[in-house]
């Protein structure tokens, strides 16, 4: 139970950064922190005490394996997370070239 709550606190830290920070780079960082906390929560759901990694070696017939389905989900989610982070950074660097600042409030004021 404590692990779940700590994991959720990590998510909340990301949410707090997303709402209160005004720097574009820090907003991207808080988005990726939220992503990390989701990965670890899904992985905690699939963990079984005394289980081994889900790879069949053929030595032990009745071994207990960790649930492979959340791992398959997170595997795709990690790579998608990298792609979206790269895209957000590209948008940030393009905005920086136009407005010479990372501050979203100034960008909002300087329309056009």
């Amino acid at each position: 139970m404590t692990v779940n709550i700590l994991c959720f606190i990590l998510f909340l830290v990301g949410l707090y950064g997303l709402i209160t920070r005004r720097n574009l780079v820090k907003i991207v960082i808080s988005l990726s922190i939220m992503e990390f906390s989701l990965f670890i929560f899904l992985e905690l759901v699939g963990y079984i005490d005394g289980g081994i990694a889900p790879i069949i070696t053929g030595q032990d017939a009745n071994a207990v394996y960790v649930d492979p389905l959340p791992q398959a989900m997170i595997l795709t989610a990690i790579v998608i997370g990298l792609a979206t982070t790269a895209m957000l950074m590209a948008i940030a660097i393009r905005l920086y070239r136009k407005y010479k600042t990372f501050d979203i409030r100034e960008i909002k004021n300087l329309k056009g």
Binding site: A53, I55, L75, T76, I78, V79, L82
Partner: peptide, 12 residues
């Protein structure tokens, strides 16, 4: 298909 890893890790 035999050991940990696969297309995603190897490609990266």
């Amino acid at each position: 298909h035999l050991t940990p890893g696969g297309g995603f890790a190897g490609g990266a």
